[in-house]
Write a protein that binds this DNA or RNA. Sequence first.
DNA 1: ATTAGCACTCAGACAGGGTGAGTGCTAACA
DNA 2: TGTTAGCACTCACCCTGTCTGAGTGCTAAT
Lengths: 343, 343
Amino acid sequence: MGEELSERNKRILEAIIEDYIVTAEPVGSRAVARRHGLTLSPATVRNVMADLEEMGFLTSPHTSAGRVPTDQAYRFYVDSLLAVGRIDKAERERIRKRYSGAGRDIGAVLHETSRLLSSVSHYMGIVLAPRFSATILRHIEFVKLGGRRILAILVAQNGAVQNRLIESEEEFSGADLVRMSNYLNELLQGLPIAQVRSRILEEMQNEKVLYDTLFSRALRLSEQTIVESGAQIFMEGQTNILDQPEFADVGRMKEIFRAFEEKNQLVDLLDRCISAQGVQIFIGAETHLSHMEGLSVITSTYVSGKNTLGVLGVIGPTRMGYGKVIPIVDYTARLVSKLLEDE
Amino acid sequence: MGEELSERNKRILEAIIEDYIVTAEPVGSRAVARRHGLTLSPATVRNVMADLEEMGFLTSPHTSAGRVPTDQAYRFYVDSLLAVGRIDKAERERIRKRYSGAGRDIGAVLHETSRLLSSVSHYMGIVLAPRFSATILRHIEFVKLGGRRILAILVAQNGAVQNRLIESEEEFSGADLVRMSNYLNELLQGLPIAQVRSRILEEMQNEKVLYDTLFSRALRLSEQTIVESGAQIFMEGQTNILDQPEFADVGRMKEIFRAFEEKNQLVDLLDRCISAQGVQIFIGAETHLSHMEGLSVITSTYVSGKNTLGVLGVIGPTRMGYGKVIPIVDYTARLVSKLLEDE
DNA sequence: ATTAGCACTCAGACAGGGTGAGTGCTAACA
DNA sequence: TGTTAGCACTCACCCTGTCTGAGTGCTAAT
């Protein structure tokens, strides 16, 4: 693998990959020879292909079929061969327009984003919503529902809202609840939600609080409201994947389907992306997703100021139009960041 | 079709249907003859089958295959032949247990219900959440997010929460917002959400309001918060459908899949069910769902007191174990009703 | 009215032959 | 020494014909 590829070999490998990306069929030496500016005979190409196969860039499904790029080839392609184009203007316009109608509600924006990624890339769009616990608390509020039932409402800086029904041990009056909200807001506002719980526990030690039963009750109540909620993920365009010829087979299709139904696998992958900045690409086995052989994932983070909010991206076959999709994901991430920045 | 079926013919038809339900293969005269208590020769059975075919209860995919029941046959089966068994005790227990851990949050309950319906029936479970607009308003609240941005929170009697980000024309102080909430709660609490808007408009005419700018602003603000939100639907176990042998074909599979991705079709069907009480059964074409040939839907409404909240059910192949699934859907609906009744 | 018998149909599995795309190897060539 | 033409070979795929088994409809006997 340390072996360098000659310029010519690179061109041939590139030709094969790009051919395969559009046709999804094993590509033969003839096709490569007549392609592009390459003025080579099929025989020469064959020799090169044999070399590339030995180096692990190509395989052939059977003796007399053409060659198919391996994951390693795609990896080399995106790292060294691919000139990631700028996204073209019309496309950019098309994307921008999709957001014009939508309100500023964060959930709606992200949902639309997943739809958009799917329809523009013609693969599957995914968006991981910001973890609620990673946001900053703006407001906490209790609403009395009747008897000892209380609805706790947490509002994050970014407009995300979480609510939780709690059955309190004792009955509170509406006025009590208002006072409790006020006290807690004073205490917790502006804190990252992940730190809220520890702040509460800390405050519980505070002697001033110990004397005020209402405050200590408020703290106990608020402790119940903070629960780690599952990650929210938007996925759209699964059928785009099923349209790919490589999955036109009942077994494969069911397998992928089942895999998609288990969203947590995907959440794990996206969670891993959240620490890095910008576009990331996982090819085939690099995704570490089981039952998802033959799929690649392109992601990017969207941010607000300097903190990362979440991850969005596209899932497609390894044989994906990387050159087109990468800028789409990149541009969309920037756009979403901008849309959310002032929240 | 006015022709009456003799007792023997009914037994034979029943045998064919039940055979087909378990095997998914066209059933031949021999199989029927040797089945059950029927002491008849295959030849006799063949004569009967020919009659049944003429009457529209059976078809044969080709000359020398067995017979397959038509939609009409299933319809006759569930109407006249099927003795809907009581759901057995172990099953009931199994279902009950599924709810023990879950909190009382309505969303969580409904989501769990769809999962449950899917796993108990081995088909696909669907639950249509109560339309928010059909619930009763318990509380309205404004939270200031910064600048002119306000988060409006509507809480319904049943614990459902809807929130909406609004950009108001003018800036309000926190105290203003509290006063506005109080005023609006006074005015609107206890009203069905569907009537809230008209109540607002009505109140706008009120001369007392006209003199109080804060009140009239409050009304204008609240008017913006009430928006018809799309119906929420939970679907689980789509892969169970794909496991059915009649859909083991790439084209069919994609088609169904695409149909499921369009949830509004399903919402329409379930919406239609909401007016009737109890279990309803749609066989094949009766569903009026396009691209869903070969599927049947069994639904039931869940209620709170005397008003219907929503619909739940199971989607499976027309060749479905009606005898088993009907009581499951029925029991689940009753159980969900009970769980939600005191909210 | 029921049944045994029989000729008939048809999908599905299987085998054999032809086709075409593609390969590897070798020998000739620049 | 790198490139190319030529050639024999491989193998998936398609088409065809044959066979088999399950199932039917009809008719004649019971």
